[in-house]
Structure formats: C-alpha cells, structure tokens
Amino acid sequence: MVRAENVYKTFYTTHKIEALVDVSCRVDKGEVVVIIGPSGSGKSTILRCLNMLEKADEGHIYIDGVDILDPKTNINKVREEMGMVFQSFNLFRHKTALGNLTLAQTVVRKRSKKEAEEKAMVLLEKVGIPDKADSYPDNLSGGQQQRVAIARALAMNPKVMLFDEPTSALDPEMIGEVLDVMKTLALEGMTMIVVTHEMGFAREVADRVIFMDEGQIVEVGTPEHFFKNPTHDRTKLFLSQIL
C-alpha cells in the first residue's frame, strides 16, 4: 500500500539538517503503524514526504503502486486517496464544519452538493458531533475540531490515513474522544500511519511500531516487542523517558 525506499531529505536553513537519512519502510493494506521518536527525529517529515507536502530528495515512494516522485505522476490524484490529519487541525476557518467536509468532495471528487452533504452528515454522526454541523471552527473545542478534521479527510474516501500528532495540541480531557474515533477507524480496517506520543494507543491499536531517531528508523516491531524488550539502547532510553 505504502512503500518508502531509501528516502533522504535534507533541509538547508542556517545550517544543514538531515531530517531523513536512508529511510525505508512499508505499510500494508489494513495495517496500523505508529511512528514514535523524540522531537526533531523526522517523524513529521517522513509523513509529509508520503503525500508530497515535502518532496523527498532521494529514494522512491510508492503509494498503491504509484511512484509519487516520478515527475509524470499527478500528485493531486495521489493525495485524493490519502487523508491527512494535522496537529493543529487546520480546519478551513471561513467554513462551517459541514462546509469543511463538503468542499473538497464537490471541488475534487465532483460530487453533487446533496450527495456531499449526506456523506458529511454520516461522518459527523460517526465522529459524534452531528449537532455541530453549522458551527464555525472558532466556536468548536479542540477535540471537536480535530474530529471534524478527521471526518473531513474521511469524506474523500481515502485508502490511507496519515495522522501527525493528532492529540498533541489538545487538552488532556479531549484526547480520549479523538483517540476513540481513531480506534474505531482502525477496527474498520483503515490503513493508518500515526505519529503520536500516546503509548496507550500504540499498545492497543498498532500492528507495528516504528521508532525513529535523528532521521533514521532505529527499530521496527510489534507493540509487545517494543514495550517488553526493545533491542536498541536508544529505544530503551526513549521509552524510559516517556513511559
């Protein structure tokens, strides 16, 4: 479903930052993969490279068999099939919750307004806030905003969902409601790549956990492996710090 091969990404700011160094991984259909690692380790960068919000310098990335780094690939078509949920929600501030869900459906998927609205209401129901359909993002709590954002991504019927620290900007009491939505999705068989610090979620839902540090994938394994006997010292150190 998703395959990255020897991906490199370097940022040049005041100095050279090697955000990704020879990263290879694969995620199969229906799998839930959680990426963990310290701040600045390249978790966001690999996720953003997967849907070309960031262009990888080297290597190959295949989404559903399509090489997205090939200049001939229409990246918009690829992105239609990949939902992305951001740490800061990024809801369209001038649209209601409903408007957030219907816009891309009508513009990109060419669905009729009616069809898009029906789909939107089903999804708002699913994330538990159908009563907020007509609210603007500024009038929603963080947890509600993030659930709308997840519904917005789902409205496009994506094949893969990418989550970049979806609960990090939330007050503790709202984390649960967002994680619950994500758990339901996982149970329904959605392919998901989740960057998170929520180890409970990783333990409970993940099929595999990837540990990244300094732009590299250090260790990959099942949650049991990770939380019972991780092999690498860096993994042990990181886990001891956050658990």
Binding site: N51, N76, R79, F86, N90, F92, V108
Partner: peptide
C-alpha cells in the same frame, strides 16, 4: 496550514 490542508485533500494550487 490552510494551504497544506487544502492540498492534502487533493485540491490543486489554484483551487
């Protein structure tokens, strides 16, 4: 983030 969210939904730059 507004632009990134729009692009991540498959919208083109002009859209």
């Amino acid at each position: 983030g507004q632009m990134e969210a729009a692009r991540s939904l498959g919208m083109t730059y002009p859209q």
